[in-house]
Design a protein around this nucleic acid. Structure first.
Length: 422
DNA sequence: TCTGGGGTCCTAGGACCC
DNA sequence: TCTGGGGTCCTAGGACCC
């Protein structure tokens, strides 16, 4: 049986979400900003046409934004997450084998489908997602994931494809590979693209035709797999069950510079608490906690400081109380007076199953008590709303909170916003 | 004034061991 | 000229993704 993968990708997802709730923004340039309203992370086609770049600092883009009346929003992750779930559950109607690849992308396994016309089926999926969620998607179908990605890119850009491209015939595959720049291949970033150009390899077709030895030598075994996938040989299957994370990180840039240890402690406690929560959600525990802090590298004239501290836990844990304690210890170790800090973060690693935690005879923590406390905390926060219950160290002043001055309301979760009442 | 956050995988090289 | 060789573990750094 020959394999067949579909990649479904939401078009300009964050912008499209805004348009669902603001239909008047159709055909109007729209951008969505990163945390702290720092830079552009999503652009509508009209915004792309104005030359606005992905990752471009907001202040730098502001003149263009003002000149062309570009509409801009802060990110609202609750809203985005909710719309993402709607799209993914719609896709699940079309095949049991779905891999949720990212917030706005999914791979579908169409390999075993008999008696259906694939291009028609793909178009039905596209129309249904649009009708049920309001989100426009593009669909690429091909024998490997890498080729499905490539087909998707063309489906999105080509007027003729109109959002759907199925690449199964050799001559179509060859033409598609020849018109794709090597740097636009999934897995080839800017470094590898430069390197490949220096060897005269400029498009995906040329990359598909290098020797295995060349691929391995210059692009490692990852690149060798990629090259095989370009030739139509599948090297990656669908990942239907998301694997447990091996590292969990929570970090943010601050809304304004932070100078005191007390404020940093609050922020680090909040991040450690988020890590602990994510850890419990996947029923894991960690053995290592790392904290990092740094000043603003863009302010070159100001004194710079960057440091990290890693602490090995005596016994692996997923308790917010414990992780906050260790993260605070780490922070105290690296904090230096006299700097304006821009960002802090907590990173936890050495993650394993919660019930497989190694015992330690010197362990003085009552683990069953902690576990039941955390269970209660998670249940309360789930039923009464995020942040209802937290540990004291997380504080309340939060002068370091990121900025989000252009936030859209939570249309999908707040009835007041849906009904437009005040 | 203003520059995101959260991940994965691989390799090279050093330390250490027998 | 030529200084043992092979295995494992760990870490730092590099590359990529959305």
């Amino acid at each position: 049986m020959t394999s067949l993968f579909a990649l479904v990708d939401c078009n300009n997802f964050y912008c499209s979400v805004m348009r669902v709730f603001h239909p008047e923004l159709n055909n109007v340039p729209v951008v969505v900003l990163s945390n702290n309203d720092g830079s552009i992370i999503a652009r509508s086609n009209e915004a792309k046409a104005l030359g606005l770049q992905m990752g471009q600092p907001f202040f730098e883009a502001k003149p263009t934004i003002d000149k062309y009346n570009v509409v801009y929003f802060s990110s609202n992750y609750t809203l985005i997450g909710d719309m993402s779930a709607r799209v993914h559950s719609t896709l699940a109607r079309f095949t049991p084998n779905v891999e949720i690849y990212s917030i706005d992308e999914a791979f579908l396994d169409l390999g075993g489908f008999k008696g259906i016309v694939i291009p028609d089926y793909a178009r039905t999926i596209r129309n249904t997602v649009k009708k049920w969620t309001g989100i426009p998607v593009s669909i690429g179908v091909a024998p490997t994931k890498t080729l499905a990605k490539l087909a998707n890119r063309i489906a999105k850009k080509s007027e003729k494809a109109n959002g759907v491209l199925v690449l199964t015939e050799a001559k179509h595959l060859e033409a598609a590979l020849k018109r794709t720049d090597v740097g636009d291949v999934w897995g080839i970033g800017s470094r590898y693209a430069t390197k490949l150009h220096s060897f005269g390899i400029n498009n995906a077709w040329q990359l598909a035709n290098v020797t295995d030895a060349f691929a391995k030598k210059h692009l490692t075994v990852v690149g060798l797999r990629l090259v095989k996938e370009l030739r139509g040989e599948p090297c990656a299957d669908l990942e239907i069950e998301p694997p447990a994370k091996k590292g969990i990180c929570s970090s943010r840039s601050f809304g304004k510079p932070v100078t005191t240890l007390d404020d940093l402690k609050e922020a680090v406690a909040v991040y450690a608490s988020r890590c602990a929560y994510k850890l419990r959600q996947q029923k894991s525990a960690c053995r290592v906690v790392t904290v990092f802090i740094h000043t603003n590298p863009f302010r070159e004239q100001e004194p710079q400081y960057y440091n990290t501290k890693t602490i090995n836990l005596p016994v692996s844990s997923s308790s917010t109380i414990e992780l906050v304690q260790y993260a605070t210890m780490a922070l105290e170790h690296i904090y230096r007076d006299g700097f304006a800090y821009k960002k802090a973060g907590v990173y936890i690693t050495e993650i394993g199953p919660a019930d497989g935690a190694q015992m330690n005879i010197f362990d003085r923590v009552d683990r069953s008590k902690h576990a039941s406390l955390m269970l209660t905390l998670d249940q309360l926060n789930k039923s009464m709303g995020k942040g209802t219950v937290k540990v004291a160290a997380e504080g309340v002043s939060h002068i370091w909170e990121p900025k989000a001055e252009f936030s859209p309301p939570c249309y999908t979760t707040r009835i007041e916003d849906v009904l437009k009442v005040r």
